[in-house]
Design a protein around this nucleic acid. Structure first.
Lengths: 356, 356
DNA sequence: GTGAAAGCGCTAACAT
DNA sequence: ATGTTAGCGCTTTCAC
């Protein structure tokens, strides 16, 4: 455990001032002669600038924070891989936190990042806007991905309007009229949920299905809204059920749905954990896929192909989304970044059949 | 974006010196009166000590680094969740890196962590001991998990002896005789691969299987060694094949195996990515599981139950391993931590049948 | 083009 | 018990 060389060591060994070393290393002005000498000495001493000193001086830690609900949800793992890939190529560290979908843990993690002076953050949010207020107030550059924080319950506008606005936002038709007292929307990276769900529902309807259920989880508001829209007026509310995010509750929701409404003929799972639950619950109840029930799952994950039959899915580019989010949060040098919406794709495999 | 209060602000507002504030906040000695006042003022100013100052002063960043090959490998995701859970309860940040199983990327990430002065590191290593030398020399506390770094090719002892030593180490029978010039083993958290593989092989043999193949990946040396041992003398070398870590190469390996040796009746996949590949390849070649070929997969992952039939697996406690690794790396206050080996469990589901 | 010097926010001697 | 002070390694004016 030898002590590392500091900038001062390099300066002395090169016979220059520390300022010069700093300049050379960060591409500032210096005569070719000095530059070369400094570089040589630095290499010879195996000098690596300490991020500690720089961070304190600049009062900010480099790199970025990354908050996801659960890494064992394969979609978030793909997303994280995308973020890491971008960060790696930029040489920036990523501080990771897993929130378990719990706003309180999320708030704690935000606090931890604040304490570390991490001022760039990518998040798949679990808490509502109130949870995120501290981060924004502290001047963090926040990029949301996969979904946006819910509006706090106390807000004065009605949910219906919110859903409509979100949908319009997605299609890029219009920005939601920003109420004067609301902060401007933060940049985000979303999949085009509306189109994805719509395509899936149309596909199912084309196969003759009329009683289509939606199995959702936390943060799937935009997806449900799109589902309602695609299915068209009066939606059978019993066919829209939610889990709380855990695998257990997803299973319970799926199982309950199948048992309470044996007349349904197709289900759209709002995420891969819910799709997993649906397959399990169906098997447990001796429902054959797709003979007895057709299934479309949001998220394409490697194991979707392993099922028998392989699962028809709405694929969203998880890795790309992560990469883009990291680009946004890095590039936005103070400027407010533009949001991006990436396309989804319906991948037809074997889990949907004609209604019978 | 208001500027945060510093320790100096608190000191002034409370009418004390900065040292007193520091002491109070880190549980040092102080009169109840002062303590209370300082605490009150700190709360009132919403003071949060900056990790930046502390880190520079102590010449080390708190928290820990975490290096895994690939988060979309569900086992590593589970492992990471364990690490994060422990870190969260300790309020420590985790800097994550994904190496893609590539020693070069691993080395770069180690360099990045060194630059950040992160001095605690948990890793599922991809590079050999040479790759890890810089980290160790720099005085990092490193805990390996899931596997140990391979010995560099230049080493003077033969592979057979290495394998034997590793096995003995696993069973706790004896420490491998440390060559005088070799550094002492670093602490690690491993699953009891030997017992896990042995149990699986015995189970398959009990079902009448004689031509059992092993489908391995990088870092599976201990598992192969255990496989060879469990199968017994002269192992049919064609039945031991390897992928390089990617899903594609795993698939190629599995497919090649099935095609070149149609006489095999069972396969042990050394990890979940390989198990996935085996299922895919078998289906593609119209091999029925378990009628035509029995399959045991290392790693229990949620989707193992989704397959038809559900996969029989050797479960290792991924999450626990992560938690334990984090405990080790945090607790070891300079002292060299003891390694831990956790038990595996054969979970019999439906992917193995009698030989026919 | 280059160097000297002033901190960034904190902790740990040391002094009182 | 508490205040004063000296840096930790770096970047960035500001003189020269």
């Amino acid at each position: 455990m030898e002590k590392r060389a500091t900038i001062k060591d390099v300066a002395e060994a090169a016979g220059v001032g520390v300022a010069t070393v700093s300049r050379v290393l960060s591409g500032g002005s210096a005569s070719p002669r000095t530059r070369e000498r400094v570089l040589a000495v630095a290499a010879q001493l195996d000098y690596r600038p300490s991020a500690l000193g720089r961070n304190l001086r600049q009062r900010r830690t480099g790199g970025m924070g990354l908050l996801v609900p659960d890494l064992t949800d394969t979609f978030y793992a793909q997303f994280a891989e995308g973020v890491l890939a971008c960060a790696r190529s930029a040489g920036e560290p990523v501080v990771l936190g897993s929130t378990g979908g719990d706003p309180e843990q999320e708030a704690e993690l935000i606090g931890m990042l604040l304490e570390q002076s991490v001022d760039r953050l990518i998040a798949v949010p679990s808490g509502d806007e109130d949870t995120w207020a501290p981060a924004v107030r502290a001047g963090m550059t926040v990029v949301f991905a996969d979904r946006l924080p819910a509006r706090p319950f106390s807000e004065d506008d009605d949910p219906a309007a919110t859903a409509v606005n979100d949908l319009m936002l997605l299609d890029g038709l219009a920005a939601p009229p920003p109420a004067a007292h609301r902060p401007p929307e933060l940049p985000s990276v979303l999949a085009d949920d509306r189109a994805g769900i719509r395509t899936a529902v149309r596909y199912l309807r084309g196969l003759g299905h009329r009683r289509i259920a939606f199995l959702g989880g936390p943060g799937h508001d935009r997806r449900v809204a799109a589902f309602r829209e695609a299915v068209g007026a009066p939606v059978d509310e019993e066919l829209v059920v939610f889990g709380t995010g855990s695998r257990d509750s997803a299973y319970a929701a799926a199982s309950g749905l199948f048992q309470s409404r044996p007349d349904l003929s197709a289900v759209v799972a709002g995420g891969n954990v819910l799709g997993e639950a649906a397959v399990l619950a169906a098997r447990e109840l001796d429902l054959r896929v797709p003979r007895d029930v057709s299934l479309v799952m949001y998220d394409d994950v490697p194991w979707a192909e392993l099922c028998s039959p392989p699962l028809t899915v709405i694929a969203q580019p998880g890795r790309d989304m992560g990469y883009r989010a990291a680009e946004l949060v890095l590039r936005s040098g103070g400027r407010r970044a533009r949001s991006v919406v990436l396309p989804t794709e319906l991948i037809i495999r074997g889990s949907c059949g004609p209604h019978r």
